[in-house]
Simulated scan of single mutants.
Amino acid sequence: MKIRSMTGFASGQGRLGVHSWSWEMRSVNAKGLDLRLRVPDWLDGLEVHLRKVMGNTLARGNVSLGLRISRGEEAAGTLTLNKPLLASVLTALAEAEALAQSAGVDLSVTSGADLLSIRGVLETTAIEDDPAPLVAELKKEFESLVSEFVQMRETEGAALEQVLRNQLAEVSRLTQLAADSAEARKPLVAAALKVNLAKVLENADGADANRVAQELAMLAVKSDVTEEIDRLAAHVTAAEDLLATGGAVGRKFDFLMQEFNREANTLCSKALNSDLTSVGLELKAVIDQMREQVQNIE
């Protein structure tokens, strides 16, 4: 499986009969999967289906989906002549003309357009739509939209993966540099332990031998960074394995970055050497950069 980014975008348009529509799907980072849909509620069963498809396809991200549907002018309906009303109008018109003639008043000629403009003579009959064919077509088209959306996430994920691999290579290089610095400082650490041992022995009159041994052991542990270096190397391997596995590995990467940061902090605190401290600070800088990138992995 491929590494995916949590950011993505896809859009589409379609038409069926008198209906036309447009889709827009986009997402940003989130701790989990947050689906926000704006779908006409008269399309029975569509939103449930869309949520199911998105839930089965996506693992993380704040994902919004909008669907806009419009009807063409031909969907307005058909015109119907209200014959009873028209008959009544004509009867009334004839009576009015007869009265006007008897009174010597000439009326203007009434046209067909005048009659049809009278309210109620011409009626519009709405077309009742069966939404089932439209819902079926929208479900079918949504598969292509989701495929385009996932493809964009995978494209961004590929670029993100390359950045992470480069950063992991840098962490690996710095870890080896830390190991070399730790090896080079061993004579200095040994000398410092001897000095500390001498100080302890000077003030050890009447002291508990076990207590003295514990203090010496603590001094040795505080200066040993072998475990931190080994764990950093192990974390690099674990991160590379996650990239190779692919899929929704974002949460695992989040946890792994915490471990990276913990070891780098401990390494700096135990450095007791400017060179090793410098390497530790470089490690922390690269790990922080990795953490920013990891926040975008699905």
Rank of each mutant, 00 (worst) to 15 (best):
T78G: 04
L79Q: 03
L79E: 02
L79F: 06
L79A: 13
L81Y: 01
K83F: 00
K83I: 00
K83N: 00
P84W: 00
P84K: 01
L86F: 00
S88G: 12
L90H: 05
L93D: 03
L93E: 05
A94I: 12
A94E: 14
E97R: 14
L99V: 11
A103R: 11
G104A: 03
D106V: 15
V109T: 15
V109S: 07
A113G: 15
D114K: 05
I118W: 01
I118R: 02
I118T: 04
G120S: 07
G120Y: 02
E123F: 00
T125F: 04
A126Y: 05
A126Q: 12
E128C: 04
P133E: 01
E137V: 13
E137Q: 15
L138E: 05
K140L: 10
E141A: 14
E143M: 11
L145G: 02
V146F: 04
V150R: 06
Q151N: 10
Q151C: 08
R153K: 13
R153I: 07
T155P: 11
E156V: 09
G157W: 11
G157Q: 08
A159Y: 09
L160N: 08
E161D: 07
Q162D: 10
Q162L: 13
V163C: 06
V163G: 10
R165Y: 09
N166M: 11
N166C: 09
Q167M: 06
A169P: 07
E170D: 09
L174C: 06
T175C: 14
Q176S: 14
Q176N: 14
L177C: 11
L177H: 12
E183P: 04
A184H: 04
K186F: 08
A192S: 13
L193M: 15
